[in-house]
Nucleic acid binder design. Structure first.
Lengths: 91, 91
DNA sequence: TATATATTTAGACAAATATCTAAATACTTT
DNA sequence: AAAGTATTTAGATATTTGTCTAAATATATA
């Protein structure tokens, strides 16, 4: 099993959850702390933390510590892999 | 919850499995019967049938009965929804 | 009509997933 | 140093998922 296939697995797994897709939609607009992200959902902070971990493992987001906050940012370049796969279906 | 979001859920759920993505890759090349698809994998026919059902519910494939065979075809138009969503991440 | 072939449905089960609460870690402020 | 804030880790649990075998359904052929 190639690294490419593992990456695709991680990406599709990460995208297979409405909450995680919404998190990406939020981060598309601006960087946010874990707490700010959690505040946007009726889900506990530990659960959001877990979702962030899955997105991070898929390389869809990155994080940077800023004092006591952890700021999450979207990594749009990884979407290119999915985009390319999708494009193979265009005729 | 909108119909759009349900559709996206079904699509991402369907794509979140390497076997199902491979089935789509096969059907990209040509229409195949359920048996021909099953022959391409080391998975039982009932399991493949279940995968086909999930792909069909997501509208990613269509099926047509031809005698005792059921021929599956890819529906590329539904990929447009995913494509559009992915494209919102391009800067 | 009986038998063979193609596919799905039903039911079971182990593994993966999303969620929670409680506790731990790390940083900031008083 | 103690208390407060931000976040994650740990552990538990209910639900979902992928797989299997056995049985049912539908079509074709002898």
């Amino acid at each position: 099993m190639s690294k490419y296939i593992n990456a695709m697995n991680d990406i599709f797994k990460a995208l297979n959850d409405a909450t995680r897709r919404e998190i990406l939609d939020l981060l598309k607009q601006k960087d946010l702390s874990a707490g700010e992200i959690a505040d946007a959902f009726n889900i506990s902070k530990p659960s959001i933390s877990h979702h962030l971990d899955i997105l991070k493992r898929a390389d869809l987001i990155t994080s940077e510590k800023n004092g006591q906050f952890i700021i999450y940012s979207i990594n749009t370049t990884i979407m290119e892999d999915v985009l390319q796969w999708i494009l193979t279906f265009k005729q």
